[in-house]
Design a protein around this nucleic acid. Structure first.
Lengths: 348, 348
DNA sequence: TAACTTTCTTTACGCGCGTAAATTATTTGT
DNA sequence: ACAAATAATTTACGCGCGTAAAGAAAGTTA
């Protein structure tokens, strides 16, 4: 101990052993401190914190996780990080994890099922206390997902795959579509529904169905325009499909409700390219609405009328549910669906 | 061994020890196999792979990294993942790492310097073979950055902070601005330059300077319009600033070159809101151009004329340089700047 | 100050794996 | 078939930390 205390102040500390000897406290106590500073006597705490100021040592988080019963690690998985919607909700979730004292690690499946499996495998190595998982959906490997949820406390969000995991938290897609359909019907011609034929996300089916149900209830003729297109380049799919639909006059009314904002953004571009004026003014030929409240929907021309996810509420509910489960509050599986808010802009 | 070989095929394998006994091969040899399957005799390899089919065991990557001289982990750090530009380049880099046999882990500083420091600390625990780092720039903590680069093989990209790290790879901002300024001068009135007063990214200064230099060379009067605004909400800053500039008639010509695409997107929205027609047609009042080739620039109205990063080339050069360095090819620090391609669309 | 409680130290082992050295088994060349 | 070369096994230790148990020291109460 004597020798250690006299070591040069700036000698790089390699591990907790060295830091312990430098601070004059035993390693187990130092370990205890890092797990919870309040768990050691104030005097001891002060000595450790003094040493900390001189040596800027930080424990290796991965070594910490190795032999702990309950780690502070939380995995966040989204299907596609290049979609600003997921980037935004991931950022939101990360912040909540940090605020709650957890250590988030972010993963993206990059729209690919095999990659999603890889991510889940990596996550196992992390030994996370819990995982917030937005699955790819239809494309996900259900068996792998089920096994993963059985092994790791996992809360599904955004898109539900069977009743896997602790619970599900997402947006109320039925309410989304019903609400905006209602708005469109009340303010002009009833909407046609513009969607991808083979959507990756199961929410798309709920939205189509909600549209059909709503139209029936309002006593209006429903019309679904399903366009071709694979992958995750929704804007381009919407643009190409929009051109085709406009060219062939597939829309039976002047109002189009898109299955999601990215498709709507593509459709708006198609309209622009064809010289079709979009909006609710007298001189406009067509109304276009989206669904999601995509970060970019504010900046289209015209700005997109849409129904917006309650990002904050979804992420808060998801995070809080997971934290509660981690801390032992057992609850039966349930599905929480958060309502969206109509965001009225110029496009419809 | 006898007992182990008779264990039930579906008993979950917990670690390499168990898997080794199940496969009938010693643990060190199994370890060798996972580090490089080619390094063991074909017969041994076959036995391991047979066992692998029955038991789907995978080594814990974090435990692997713990006591390895050279890990396969690569860290990727971007300043802001909610910006699709960074999301896109991160995705690109991740894929290249995987293809080269490395294991990428993605981090975002979320636009915050303290967070960036946190990320670098976490990265140390990962013991990565190398790091691809796009620093926040002006806001980055230079001391922390310098120390990190000294400890971990780090390649800087996108935005250069002094001569830290192995090398720098990014876009040639001077060429970007010179090129598009030239285009704008040749096709209409010379451009004004629209930028943030206090940009977060050092590239912004290079672009302004390149604009000034180019205008001087072309013998045209330069005019820079610098708008207020803090943070990373560039679109909104551009929109608000655009309104102000248009209101007060700050632009001396009908052509505006924006410092980046996100600012341009905001400006386009301001134009729309004021009924100012943008484009190069006879009936248009103003031309707007951006810089970056932002994923969304294709879908503005009118689609944005811009100068696009060569995402592929930047990421490939960055990744290859890092891999070369990891594999021992020592080279002096150098800065590689990739040229951009003019993307002609309707806005200018 | 004695008796008690709390906290810390010591010691020891575990996590899941890498790695090195010495030994034994297998393959290869002839 | 035998020696040489190659590969696998055994043994042992290390990485950086968590955690448990027993004992010593410090703090608290009376």
């Amino acid at each position: 101990m004597e020798a250690s205390l006299r070591r040069l102040p700036m000698a790089r500390i390699k591990n907790m052993e060295e830091f312990a000897s430098v601070s004059g406290i035993s390693r187990p106590t130092v370990s205890k401190y890092f797990n919870d500073p309040e768990s050691v006597r104030p005097k001891t705490r002060a000595r450790i914190e003094d040493a900390l100021k001189l040596h800027d040592y930080r424990p290796n988080i991965y070594a910490m996780n190795q032999n702990r019963k309950l780690t502070k690690a939380v995995g966040i998985v989204v299907p596609l990080l290049v979609d600003p919607y997921f980037a935004e909700i991931a950022r939101n979730l990360e912040q909540r994890c940090i605020d709650a004292g957890y250590r988030p690690t972010l993963f993206s499946a990059h729209g690919d099922s095999a990659h999603e499996v890889e991510v889940l495998d990596s996550l196992r190595s992390l030994k996370p206390a819990g995982v917030l998982l937005a699955p790819l959906g239809r494309a996900s490997d259900h068996d792998v997902l089920e096994k993963f949820c059985a092994d790791v406390p996992t809360l599904l969000f955004d898109s539900s795959v069977e009743e896997f995991g602790l619970s599900f938290v997402g947006s109320d897609n039925r309410q989304f579509t019903t609400h905006i359909t209602d708005y469109l019907c009340r303010t002009g011609e009833p909407p046609c529904f513009f969607e991808m034929k083979t959507p990756a996300n199961p929410n798309a089916h709920r939205r189509r169905q909600a549209y059909l149900d709503a139209m029936q209830e309002f006593g209006q003729p429903a019309q679904v325009v399903s366009i071709e297109g694979e992958g995750w380049e929704f804007e381009e799919i919407g643009r190409i499909g929009g051109h085709k639909a406009l060219e062939e006059g597939l829309f039976s009314t002047n109002t189009i409700l898109c299955s999601n904002d990215r498709l709507a953004i593509g459709l708006l571009t198609a309209c622009y390219e064809r010289g079709v004026k979009v909006g609710r003014g007298e001189d406009c030929q067509i109304r276009v609405a989206g669904q999601d409240g995509h970060p970019h929907s504010r900046y289209t021309c015209p700005p997109l009328t849409t129904i917006s996810h309650d990002y904050d509420k979804v992420s808060q509910t998801a995070a809080d549910s997971l934290f509660a489960a981690i801390e032992g509050h057992v609850e039966p599986w349930k599905s929480t669906r958060i309502e969206g808010k109509l965001t009225l802009r110029d496009s419809a």
